Simulated assay, not measured.
Amino acid sequence: MTDVSLFSNEQIAALLAALPDPAFILTRSGKYAALFGGTDARYYHDGSALVGKSIPDVLNGEKAAWFIAQIAIALAKTGLHVIEYQLNRKDVKGLDADGPEDTIWFEGRVQALEYRVQGEDAVLWVASNITASKKLEALLRMQSETDALTGLANRRKLMQALTDNYELFARYQTPASVLIFDIDKFKNINDTYGHLSGDKAIQATADVCRRELRTTDFPARLGGDEFVILMPHTGWEQAKPIAERLRQKVPAALRTLGTLGDGATISGGLSELLPGDSSFEDVLKRADDALYRAKRDGRNRIVHLEA
């Protein structure tokens, strides 16, 4: 441990002032008793005007209450209290129109002090701007859950959405339907016009899904030319017109690509979650079986299977 007696009071004050992240002394009631550091101008403005104010003077309602609650938690702990939080212009009083549009993320490291400040228990709150790492984290998460060709959800994200909806159904009987469809004779497109043309057909199909589906629907590319549409809060009777709209709109979009879309159709299998299902895999298998029946029955149709 460093012997602070080696430094003069002026040197210690200079060290504290040079801290890149701001360090606040906050009392139990939320008063800004002191501020040190915050010299990294890339992330922080001069906060010296906060000293002497209280958190409710600076932050709106729920956000102010949250900060004061975190101070209480830190004071009740024996160790460091570490939290992540966000601030936007709606949280800060007087910044509704002038503040930054983007949300700013912070990591707070909050430690109870062993002495009282201005007659109150107090904490040291070091705030580190972690917005860049949060944006990178969100980008990596999006990339891990997004199909690169279409921009729709990929298989991984689909499986999570299916799991979530199955759990809602199992607990609250909240309905959900699943449509699996693909482009009829898609192999002929690849063989005749090449894989780049096949990619264009897949992208055009994804665009139709984005245009024609409801905002609550969840389209995903399962692989190849196979797509899955999860329709939450929707029984199969309500899902059938949505599926039929795709059956009409996708071929129309493919025809705009030229000769590769001549005669293009899609086939689909539709099912909904049922009381006897033990997992989302049951409804997925029924929809897949219905898709194969649609192929067997002549293609260009949507087939529904209940069991």
Results as ranks from 00 to 15, higher is better:
residue 243 A to G: 10
residue 160 Q to G: 12
residue 149 L to P: 04
residue 251 P to N: 05
residue 169 F to H: 13
residue 144 S to D: 03
residue 175 P to R: 01
residue 105 W to R: 04
residue 257 L to M: 12
residue 266 I to R: 01
residue 231 M to P: 04
residue 270 L to K: 06
residue 213 L to R: 08
residue 231 M to R: 02
residue 285 K to C: 13
residue 4 V to K: 00
residue 197 S to C: 11
residue 246 L to I: 12
residue 92 V to S: 03
residue 260 L to R: 01
residue 299 R to E: 12
residue 260 L to F: 02
residue 240 K to T: 04
residue 193 Y to L: 08
residue 91 D to H: 15
residue 268 G to Q: 02
residue 32 Y to P: 01
residue 256 T to S: 14
residue 154 N to I: 14
residue 50 L to T: 08
residue 54 S to V: 07
residue 181 F to T: 03
residue 139 L to G: 10
residue 20 P to Q: 11
residue 35 L to V: 09
residue 306 E to R: 15
residue 31 K to Q: 15
residue 96 D to Q: 11
residue 107 E to F: 01
residue 205 T to R: 01
residue 124 L to P: 06
residue 143 Q to W: 07
residue 151 G to H: 08
residue 287 A to H: 02
residue 85 Y to V: 03
residue 94 G to Y: 06
residue 161 A to C: 14
residue 244 E to G: 10
residue 186 F to G: 06
residue 79 G to I: 04
residue 206 A to V: 07
residue 187 K to N: 08
residue 203 Q to H: 06
residue 270 L to E: 05
residue 221 R to M: 06
residue 229 I to D: 03
residue 93 K to G: 09
residue 221 R to A: 04
residue 46 D to M: 08
residue 303 V to G: 05
residue 224 G to W: 05
residue 176 A to K: 00
residue 129 N to P: 04
residue 10 E to N: 13
residue 164 D to N: 14
residue 191 D to H: 08
residue 113 L to A: 07
residue 157 K to V: 00
residue 122 A to G: 11
residue 247 R to Y: 01
residue 80 L to I: 10
residue 71 I to D: 13
residue 146 T to A: 12
residue 249 K to N: 15
residue 230 L to P: 00
residue 303 V to R: 02
residue 162 L to H: 07
residue 56 P to C: 09
residue 258 G to R: 06
residue 13 A to W: 03
residue 157 K to P: 01
residue 10 E to F: 03
residue 48 S to E: 13
residue 61 G to A: 12
residue 202 I to D: 08
residue 179 L to Q: 08
residue 73 I to C: 03
residue 187 K to D: 05
residue 158 L to C: 09
residue 199 D to C: 10
residue 101 E to H: 15
residue 250 V to L: 03
residue 121 D to N: 06
residue 208 V to S: 07
residue 31 K to V: 10
residue 28 R to L: 15
residue 69 A to H: 14
residue 104 I to V: 15
residue 292 Y to S: 11
residue 122 A to P: 07
residue 263 G to Y: 06
residue 187 K to M: 02
residue 85 Y to N: 04
residue 6 L to M: 10
residue 229 I to L: 11
residue 86 Q to D: 14
residue 235 G to L: 10
residue 204 A to K: 02
residue 161 A to I: 06
residue 270 L to Y: 08
residue 103 T to P: 01
residue 283 V to K: 02
residue 115 Y to R: 03
residue 228 V to T: 14
residue 307 A to Q: 15
residue 202 I to T: 04
residue 67 F to V: 11
residue 195 H to K: 09
residue 218 F to V: 14
residue 171 R to E: 11
residue 280 F to H: 09
residue 25 I to W: 13
residue 221 R to F: 06
residue 110 V to A: 10
residue 45 H to Q: 14
residue 181 F to G: 01
residue 185 K to Y: 14
residue 288 D to A: 06
residue 300 N to H: 09
residue 270 L to I: 13
residue 163 T to P: 00
residue 117 V to I: 15
residue 252 A to E: 14
residue 146 T to L: 13
residue 261 G to Y: 01
residue 268 G to V: 00
residue 142 M to Q: 15
residue 61 G to M: 04
residue 100 P to K: 04
residue 237 E to R: 08
residue 194 G to Q: 06
residue 7 F to R: 11
residue 19 L to I: 11
residue 206 A to F: 05
residue 4 V to E: 05
residue 183 I to Y: 02
residue 292 Y to H: 14
residue 182 D to R: 00
